[in-house]
Design a protein around this nucleic acid. Structure first.
Lengths: 204, 204
DNA sequence: CCTACCGATCGGTAGG
DNA sequence: CCTACCGATCGGTAGG
């Protein structure tokens, strides 16, 4: 029996998690009922409780199991570049592209902040930060031509950029303002983080 | 009877809105009950329905009435500067500072996205965009030394920066990573939007 | 503006 | 893993 072989119980558990992710994304946590989750997972209500003790436990499992950083971090770390500019540009484009493949997680994070007041978030950050922070520490140490020399701050800016990219997209895609947006917003976003909104003197 | 004189009915209505804002911020929309709102507003449950037809209507009223752009926009527009760099720097610092005075609104926006799927958001943007977009159009037209020449994109970046500043703050303040942060994160944030994370050649 | 109530639905469980 | 059920609580209303 290899690791990838799923027992029936594991499959059911996954079905519940997947159903829950869908519903949480559509209506948030508290507006989603256990009965809805059961129905979408093709299970009787009581059946869920063979796999999860409570509704809260389902959310916790999702927040941990479905976190895309496990998938995305290795890809971002693979980013190559002749110089720091190329490197950061590739890393950011990879992060945005990969995050865009799993847009659900941005919403899960917002649910966590809105409906749980970041209860599980601290735990998660405790797991992720030690893996990601050293990457930025190394960048700051080996590359001298950075304006931002604090690793935690660079990490915050990097992550904040990804976050704001998708949140502003969510907000504006609902309205006409989206039409006024250029075709390549990602390129511009990355360019601004690298060089700012101002032209440098030699570009004037 | 001058405009500023509040009738008793208006005062009660406001008390309900204020109580609701507090509770929505603490637990989100669906986890807040009408009974909780009534209690915090010092009112019987039934009394609320003299002022609002439904729970949803309370949220709508809040999303519209309490929007801080009415307060913040004029202040941001007052921002002065000898050159475009000073101007933008002042405008951004004002926006972050003023937004920080009413941090509730970021959460309300997130509730709107998570629990209402942006239902009211489009309406709001329709009201705000026509007032804010021209400001960025004017900036792009009169100042030639900008890397970002699309007004909608510049607006998105400006707003995205404010958003990401507070969201990353919310996320990281719950953990130890916050300790590693420099003392003046706002200055660095603004600096990065203006000049990017990279040093320019002449700074090398 | 309050009291007392409505039907509906919630999360969760016992027992098989 | 399902059926049938529990008490609690929900948003909302009638009637005064």
């Amino acid at each position: 029996m290899v690791e990838e072989t799923q027992t029936k119980g594991e499959a059911t558990r996954l079905a519940v998690e997947d159903a829950a992710v869908e519903l949480f994304m559509e209506h948030g946590y508290h507006a989603t009922s256990m009965r809805q989750i059961a129905e979408r997972a093709d299970l009787a209500l009581g059946g869920i409780y063979n796999h999860f003790k409570s509704k809260d436990e389902i959310f916790e499992a999702i927040i941990v199991d479905k976190h895309p950083y496990k998938k995305i971090l290795p890809l971002v770390l693979k980013a190559q570049g002749e110089n720091i500019e190329d490197l950061l540009k590739n890393a950011m484009q990879t992060a945005i592209t990969e995050f865009g493949r799993e847009p659900y997680y941005i919403k899960l994070m917002m649910i966590e902040l809105v409906e749980f007041n970041g209860k599980h978030g601290a735990l998660l950050l405790k797991e992720i930060a030690p893996k990601v922070l050293p990457v930025f520490e190394k960048i700051v140490k080996t590359r001298k031509n950075l304006r931002v020399t604090n690793p935690a701050m660079l990490m915050r800016i990097f992550f904040g950029m990804v976050l704001s990219y998708f949140m502003t997209d969510m907000i504006m895609s609902n309205s006409m303002v989206g039409v006024l947006m250029p075709k390549n917003p990602m390129d511009i976003y990355v360019d601004v983080i690298l060089h700012g909104v101002l032209k440098t003197k030699d570009e004037g």
